[in-house]
Each structure stands twice: as structure tokens, then as C-alpha cells.
Amino acid sequence: MKYTEKISNKLNDLLILTYDAKRGYKLAAEKVDNPAIKKFLEDKANQRHNFGHELKSEIVEYGNLPEDSGSIKGDFHRAWMKFVTTISSSESERMLEEVNRGEKKILNSYNDILNNKEWILPNTTRDLLSKQRDAIKSALETSKMYEEVVS
């Protein structure tokens, strides 16, 4: 497999996770009542939308086609999010827990790509992924803060 294909495949993996995160944030925003948490979740859904466009552009730069949908795992996770809100006494807390779980997974994926010693990423790709990873870290910290407040 060519170098550009390997990177494109990894970027497409991130793109799929980004689609999943966007949908997860949207679902979580629909399920919470707290206005501050709702705004945070809506903002993160929009951020992931923008991340998706950035990743698509990067994939096209490598001469490949970007994925156009999320994963089956993401569909199952959102179904689980819907289910747990029906049995949980604190929808906000439970939604934030699920958001945190998803963010940790995507954060690990970014770190795997950025720390991979098998290839050297071009600076533009490394900068983009680092910027997005740092934003995800920040969102995770904020989400944890909100979770502590509502628990």
C-alpha cells in the first residue's frame, strides 16, 4: 500500500469517528435540559462538523475519497445513549459520561496517528491533527467539569 493511501485510510478512520462524535453530541444536546450544557454540546457538534470538513479536504489532498458516514459502532453507541436516558435519573450526567467515553476513544485514535513512528506526517497534516486533538482534549476537560457539577 502506498504511503498516501496509508495516511488517507487513517484520516478516513478519524473522519468516521468525527461523524460519530458529531451525531453523539447532537443527540446528547437533545437529551439535556441544562442550558449551559446544551450549548456546550451543540458547540461541540458544530466543531466536529468543521473537523469533518477539514479532514475531508486533507484526504482529498492525498488524492483519495473521504468516507461519507459514521460507523456501526457509533450507531450502537447512540442507541445506548438513548436507552440509558430512559432509565437514568440524571440525563445530563449520563449524557456527559457517554460523551466522555466517546471523546477518550477518538483522542486515543488521534494520538495513535500522531505518535506513529512508521511514517512522517507532512507538517500540514500534523498541524491539523494536533489542533483537532488539542480541541478534543479541551472538550473532554470541560465535559468532565460539567459532569462533576451535575453529579
Rank of each mutant, 00 (worst) to 15 (best):
L128E: 04
N111L: 13
N123C: 07
E97P: 09
T124C: 11
K131C: 05
Y110F: 09
Q132C: 04
L129T: 05
K104E: 01
E93D: 14
E91K: 15
L121C: 11
D112Q: 15
N100V: 03
R126K: 15
L129D: 06
K104H: 02
K117Q: 13
R133W: 02
L129Q: 04
S138W: 03
D112E: 15
W119E: 13
G102D: 04
L121Q: 05
A139S: 10
K117D: 15
K131Q: 07
S92R: 02
Y110A: 03
R126L: 14
Q132S: 07
R94Q: 14
E118K: 10
V99M: 02
V99P: 00
T125Q: 04
V99W: 00
A135L: 06
E118C: 02
R94A: 12
L114G: 08
N100I: 02
D112I: 08
R94K: 15
T125W: 03
S92T: 10
L107R: 00
K137D: 04
I106F: 00
E91M: 07
E103I: 00
N108S: 15
T125G: 05
I120H: 10
R126E: 13
N116H: 14
D134E: 14
K131N: 08
E118P: 03
L96M: 06
N108Y: 13
E93T: 12
R94D: 08
K117S: 15
K131L: 08
K117L: 11
I136F: 07
L107C: 01
R101A: 03
T125I: 08
I106Y: 00
V99L: 01
R126A: 14
N115D: 15
K131F: 05
L129C: 06
T125N: 09
N123T: 13
S109T: 09
L107G: 00
P122N: 10
E91V: 10
N111C: 09
E97T: 12
K117W: 11
W119F: 15
K137S: 06
I113P: 10
E91L: 12
I113Q: 11
S130M: 09
R133I: 01
R101D: 05
